[in-house]
Design a protein around this nucleic acid. Sequence first.
DNA 1: AAAGTCACCAACCGCCAAGGA
DNA 2: GTCCTTGGCGGTTGGTGACTT
Length: 288
Amino acid sequence: MRNPSSSVTEKKSSGGRKMGLKRGPWTSEEDELLTKCINKEGEGKWRTLPERAGLARCGKSCRLRWMNYLRPCVKRGQIAPDEEDLILRLHRLLGNRWSLIAGRIPGRTDNEIKNYWNSHLSKKLISQGIDPKTHKPLVETSSTRAITKSLGAAKNGRRSESDNSGSSKMVTTTPPTSSGQNPNMYQHHFGSAVDGLEDDQMMTRGGHGNAAASDAQESAGCYYSAGQCCETNLHLEDGADAGGYHVNLQQSSQGLGNEDGIDCKGMLEDDGVFSSFLNSLINDDMFV
DNA sequence: AAAGTCACCAACCGCCAAGGA
DNA sequence: GTCCTTGGCGGTTGGTGACTT
């Protein structure tokens, strides 16, 4: 909706926009053309797809539209409480790797989850005194107080979808237990692999792994309240830790050769194995 | 009823890695 | 080894509409 008037870019601008390409919201006609073309010729070749489909859009825009809205498997509508729970758990484990998170939530797209996180979940965590980046308790400062205060004011005055029926159960003074798991599981499984996380890295993402990786390693330890803390402490880097389960998920070539930790190279190469691994973490049934 | 405020979310942007020439 | 193309990712933007004043 950046350009709701659906402008047509006349010249290639400094931002790399190309001549004659339409921008802004998609019309139903465009959706139909795109869907027809992909149904006929399949996904891929995004660069040439607009021409084949008769669309005045860039390939990137077509891909985004298809991936986020037109694919038959895309589920629209309200995020269910159990999905929200899953997002929180996955974010705690993976950080801002939205595509990975989306890959574990059927029918949801990375964009949708990212939006939901930014507009709902991060604010909810902040309002509950939890840092949405680290999942650790916020250290109260004047700025965080201001944020919390403004969030409260916003809730009082405006739409309150973020504190609907499903919300308060998610992150409260007790760890999430919607699947009936042991709330101290993370402590049991990873508890002693706590120290020395600062310089660790985890699962550099396909293209960008730096900030996101640090987010993830920061999120390795999570707390749900000052009184009752549940530390994930999943140590996701190369190397081993004799104390706890020290899991190597680093994908970069220099980081794959851990000696004593769980070798996750195969997990990353084999989505099925990685999926099982993640599901184990999510379902809290790993290492039992 | 009108004006102002704010949250939501579709869409865009820049960046990066993989793969092929 | 270098360059180019392609696909994919996370971060950010800004119009829309709900809501308040």
